[in-house]
């Protein structure tokens, strides 16, 4: 319930309309959006119970490893009611053809795979926000100083998920396991997204804000 309370509000893209080239406009809008989402995500992380008590170094390590998984989960959750479109933002839907022409086709297909998986599971908002916090706590960063406190955070979140499932989804005793078993595909999808944006950065055609570049460096 606390995580639902601190869940950030809707986010809107701000396309640069005098960019003539449709593909450049998509990628530029996407990169600007991701930079704003990163600011929101860092602010959100501070409200995840148990995160702010970690050392600053460990907070950075978890965010540097998990940020793309957190962003991907947001896009996937927003896209659940869509029909093969990605709701990157409330006012920014990406269909297959737009992704193909802007070089994002592979990312589109792996993201839709994850959308389908969560749609089949009928993941609800409480589960989505808990999984997002778990992605943060379970980011397998190699530069954690105090592993005990990170494991403790993971255990608290796992407990919250189990309590929730026991109360709200008693019909399926394996539901928390089903949700945890989506995390590997989430990790794989996020890695594909990081690869895609590293490539976009290498091509150097799209302006990218410093925070976005810094977080890409960290991956």
């Amino acid at each position: 319930s606390h995580l639902v309370l601190v869940e950030p509000g809707e986010i809107f893209a701000s396309p640069d309309l005098d960019l003539q080239d449709g593909d450049l406009r998509i990628l530029t809008t996407l990169c600007e959006l991701i930079n704003r989402e990163l600011l929101v995500t860092i602010g959100w992380a501070k409200h995840v119970p148990g995160f702010s008590v970690l050392s600053l170094v460990d907070q950075m390590a978890l965010l540097q490893s998990a940020w793309m998984e957190i962003l991907v989960l947001g896009i996937v959750y927003r896209s659940l009611p869509m029909n093969d479109e990605l709701a990157v933002a409330e006012n920014f839907l990406l269909g297959r053809e737009q992704c193909r022409s802007s070089g994002l086709l592979n990312l589109h297909s792996v993201l839709l795979q994850l959308v389908r998986k969560y749609r089949k599971t009928k993941v609800d908002k409480e589960e989505f926000v808990t999984l997002k916090a778990m992605a943060l706590a379970n980011s397998d960063s190699s530069s954690i100083e105090n592993m005990e406190s990170v494991l403790h955070l993971q255990d608290r979140l796992h407990e919250a998920l189990q309590d929730y499932e026991r109360e709200q989804h008693s019909e399926d005793p394996h539901r928390s396991g089903k949700l945890l078993m989506t995390l590997p595909l989430l990790r794989q999808t996020a890695n594909e997204a990081v690869r895609t944006f590293c490539q976009i950065r290498l091509e150097g055609r799209i302006p990218m804000h410093k925070l976005f570049l810094e977080m890409l460096d960290a991956k």
Binding site: K46, M60, L211
Partner: peptide, 15 residues
Amino acid sequence: QEKHRILHKLLQNGN
């Protein structure tokens, strides 16, 4: 630390 200046600053200052 130096390389990740912005993240460090964002986490350090309050809300």
